[in-house]
């Protein structure tokens, strides 16, 4: 708006950054919301095992528990780095 603002160049607004961070965080927290209490610990342990062999980033492992009928499916997703 202000005259000075015209010359300061475009930066991503801090509100946009806040929204992006919140969306990622909240979707993550919602996934864990309905799962059993041991799920976060299980995820940590599995990550530790995978890391012994492959260098993966913490956020490249996702774990979820789905219930279908009378069976529960534990789904583990590990994104391996290229090479």
């Amino acid at each position: 708006m202000a005259l000075f603002g015209l010359f300061s160049g475009k930066k991503k607004s801090s509100a946009a950054a806040a929204k992006e961070r919140l969306q990622i965080l909240i979707s993550h927290e919602r996934q864990n919301r309905h799962g059993p209490d041991f799920l976060p610990e299980l995820q940590r342990d599995i990550l530790a095992v995978v890391k012994k062999y492959v260098a993966v980033r913490d956020d490249h492992v996702s774990i979820r528990l789905d219930r279908a009928g009378d069976a529960s499916v534990l789904e583990l997703n590990v994104t391996l780095p290229e090479n």
């Binding site: 708006m1 607004s13 801090s14 509100a15 806040a18 929204k19 969306q23």
Partner: peptide, 16 residues
């Protein structure tokens, strides 16, 4: 502050 992009807008909060 919302217009200046310094504060989450009401639409942002509703979306989330």
């Amino acid at each position: 502050r919302v217009e200046n992009g310094e504060m989450l807008s009401k639409e942002d909060v509703c979306d989330i």
